[in-house]
Amino acid sequence: MSRRDIFTDVAAILHPLPQPTEAAEEDYDGFLEWRRQAAEEQRDTAESLRLSWEEGDQDPLLGALSSARRAKEEAEQQIRELLAYGREFVQPRPYTLGDLAAAAGMSISGVRTAYGHRDVAQVADATGAKPRQWRAPDPDDSEATA
């Protein structure tokens, strides 16, 4: 029985090879190029993980998990900011909670509570746009006045 290699296994999880589909059959050359690129990404990632391990920097699986967690946190922040933009900046009417919920894979009440004043401020900083009048009190303001 051959021993599994954690470096190539983690790389295969991070960069899975595309599987044939009907669309791939229609553009076979494009599909082969896509597979070639994914295989190259797997090799490069496996080598990078191996080097990092050998230099004592990072366990390949734990490092990949940490990176995935950071990417998830960044995606969640982007979602909060996009929701804030859709509700607080789009004029003359904001996007509906239902439309945003469907696009974000959330419930309407989840969208309503997904973002806060900090997210709105970050969108304003990033875009230079001014948010509409917001009725919800800023929790930081109530702490400052208490």
Rank of each mutant, 00 (worst) to 15 (best):
L100F: 06
A124Q: 03
P131F: 05
R43P: 10
A84V: 02
T145N: 13
D29P: 01
V120L: 05
S142C: 03
R3S: 01
D29R: 01
P16L: 01
L62W: 01
L49P: 03
D59A: 05
A129V: 11
Q19W: 03
V111F: 04
A24L: 08
G30S: 10
R3E: 07
Y115A: 01
A101W: 04
P131W: 06
L97T: 09
Q19L: 11
T96N: 02
M106V: 06
E40F: 12
E73R: 14
L61I: 12
R50I: 00
R87F: 02
S67W: 03
R132G: 12
R4T: 11
A126T: 07
Y115M: 04
D119F: 08
Q42P: 04
P139A: 04
Q77N: 15
G105A: 05
P94Y: 11
E143P: 00
S109L: 02
L17Y: 00
D140Y: 08
E74Q: 06
D125E: 15
Q58A: 11
A12R: 03
V10A: 07
Q42K: 05
A102N: 03
R35E: 00
R118Y: 12
A114E: 09
D5S: 02
E81F: 00
R4S: 14
R132K: 14
T127I: 13
L82I: 05
Y95S: 04
L62K: 09
V10R: 03
R3K: 06
R36Y: 13
A146Q: 03
G98E: 13
S107K: 04
D119N: 14
R3Q: 01
L49M: 01
A104P: 01
V123D: 05
I108R: 11
W53Q: 03
Q37P: 00
L17N: 02
P20N: 04
A121Y: 02
D125Q: 15
W34E: 02
A121N: 08
P18V: 06
T113K: 14
G105E: 06
Q91A: 11
S109W: 02
E76F: 01
G98L: 14
A136K: 12
L62V: 08
L51S: 10
A39E: 12
A39P: 08
R50N: 03
A84F: 00
P137D: 15
Q91Y: 08
A101D: 07
I13K: 01
T145V: 15
Q91P: 02
P137A: 14
T21A: 02
A126Y: 06
L82G: 08
D9T: 13
R135H: 09
A68Q: 13
R132A: 10
I108T: 11
L100T: 05
L51W: 10
G110Q: 10
A144E: 08
H117K: 07
R93A: 07
P139H: 06
A146M: 02
G86E: 15
E26D: 09
L17K: 06
